[in-house]
Amino acid sequence: MANSKSGLFSRWQQRLTKVKEEEQAQQIAEQEAQEQQKQQLAQAEAESVETEDAEAQQQQELPDPESIEEGGSFADFLKEGVDPTKKKQALRALWSQPQYNITDGMAEYALDYSNQPKLTAQAAKEVAKQVFRHLDAKLEEERKQQEAEQLRLAQQQQAEGQNDPAADAEPPAIEPSDSEEQGDTRQS
């Protein structure tokens, strides 16, 4: 039994030392990873400082957009990293240059419609006639239908009067309707 205990303890001791060695190796790997991350952060900061310095130097080198002559280059203002307000000023200066500030004369909104000439009575009458021509045609058609209906009624009454010997009276007179009177005044 002594042998089995010493074997058990020795195996336990070996396992314990193995676990401690693994923990130490893991800690060493973590420390190395942290150091590597610190180096990468330091390198990234150095690069960002360099790019910021380059951008600041580039922005200081940019000329005043208003001072660029006609046909000059605005390409430096359109690069990445340029201050948006400087870029906006440059584009405003570019589009205000004379070669881009020409109207073609075909813009309908450029005309002045506020001072229109007044129509004469004859011109106004002609415009009204053209606008309401469909309405006049409709009224004329209704008038013709009414006349045809009245004529048909008169013929019917006359035919009934021939069949009836007691009705030797004259057919009733057809009076012009309001639409007929209006149609007569429009034609004159």
Rank of each mutant, 00 (worst) to 15 (best):
70 E>C: 01
176 P>T: 06
15 R>A: 05
75 A>C: 01
84 P>W: 07
182 Q>N: 09
20 K>H: 07
19 V>F: 03
169 A>H: 15
57 Q>H: 09
116 Q>H: 06
6 S>D: 04
68 I>R: 05
170 E>C: 13
172 P>H: 15
87 K>H: 14
84 P>A: 11
33 A>E: 04
59 Q>L: 13
23 E>T: 04
186 R>D: 07
173 A>F: 14
74 F>R: 05
130 Q>K: 13
98 P>M: 10
178 D>N: 06
107 A>T: 05
7 G>Q: 12
47 E>P: 03
73 S>L: 14
176 P>I: 06
167 A>K: 14
146 Q>E: 13
80 E>C: 11
59 Q>S: 10
142 E>P: 03
48 S>H: 02
2 A>F: 01
162 Q>R: 15
69 E>A: 13
112 D>R: 15
18 K>I: 08
157 Q>A: 10
139 L>W: 08
132 F>A: 09
176 P>G: 01
149 E>W: 08
66 E>R: 02
26 Q>H: 06
27 Q>S: 04
115 N>R: 05
78 L>K: 02
9 F>L: 09
12 W>A: 09
88 K>N: 11
91 L>A: 02
88 K>Y: 10
7 G>H: 10
4 S>N: 07
38 K>C: 03
137 A>R: 14
24 Q>G: 05
42 A>Y: 03
78 L>D: 01
110 A>P: 00
58 Q>A: 13
30 E>G: 00
130 Q>N: 12
151 L>Q: 04
133 R>F: 07
184 D>C: 05
144 K>T: 07
15 R>K: 02
99 Q>V: 04
102 I>S: 06
181 E>S: 08
21 E>R: 03
133 R>I: 07
120 T>S: 11
160 E>Q: 15
52 E>A: 11
127 V>F: 13
15 R>P: 00
152 R>K: 13
150 Q>D: 07
163 N>K: 13
172 P>K: 15
141 E>T: 09
105 G>T: 07
18 K>N: 12
119 L>T: 08
182 Q>M: 14
120 T>Q: 01
148 A>P: 01
142 E>W: 09
55 E>S: 09
165 P>G: 06
129 K>Y: 11
108 E>Q: 06
122 Q>L: 13
33 A>H: 01
23 E>K: 04
29 A>P: 00
125 K>D: 07
147 E>M: 11
71 G>S: 04
35 E>S: 01
113 Y>T: 09
49 V>H: 05
100 Y>D: 07
63 P>Y: 11
